[in-house]
Amino acid sequence: MSVAFSETGRAEFERLLTRYPDRKAVILPALHLAQKEFGYVSDEAIVYIAGLVGTSPADIEGVASFYTMYNRKPVGKYHVQICRNISCSLLGAEHLIEHVTGKLGVNPGGTTPDGKFTLSQVECLGSCGTAPVMQVNDEYHENLTVESIDRILDQLP
């Protein structure tokens, strides 16, 4: 099944092309755009972007697979990403990851059966002064405690 950007997405893609002296430079932003529009970077999206950029699907796949933020498989409605690096670990991140694993009933990397949450452990999010920290979709949540993490996850529609 083929995919295509929405009208707004297509306009954004055309705008991106004007910002660089080389067409290939839009590959990263186009992959972000695909993930935003289609929910994840599917094989179809790879073929579609390759066509737009004018390169091979293998070229796009090679780029997409290098970067951790491009989800090559569908993720839940909320992608809960908890930092496990040193500053967060010193302030209890391991305990938080255990807590959320139990709460959602999935191990890191897994998605809840209702498709609402995907849980991931991630490396440093650059928010060490307000550790522990997690990112849910695009948004950061800082100075986490078991209580605040419960509140944040429980309030998500």
Binding site: Y20, A25, F66, T68
Partner: peptide, 28 residues
């Protein structure tokens, strides 16, 4: 002209030549 270019989750892209490759749409 100034343009914001978003990376995609790779620590190595903080290294300047890797960053340049990533800016050009390649693996970092």
């Amino acid at each position: 002209d100034v343009t914001v270019h978003r990376g995609a989750g790779a620590y190595i892209c903080g290294e300047e030549t890797s960053l340049i490759n990533s800016l050009e749409g390649k693996r970092g």
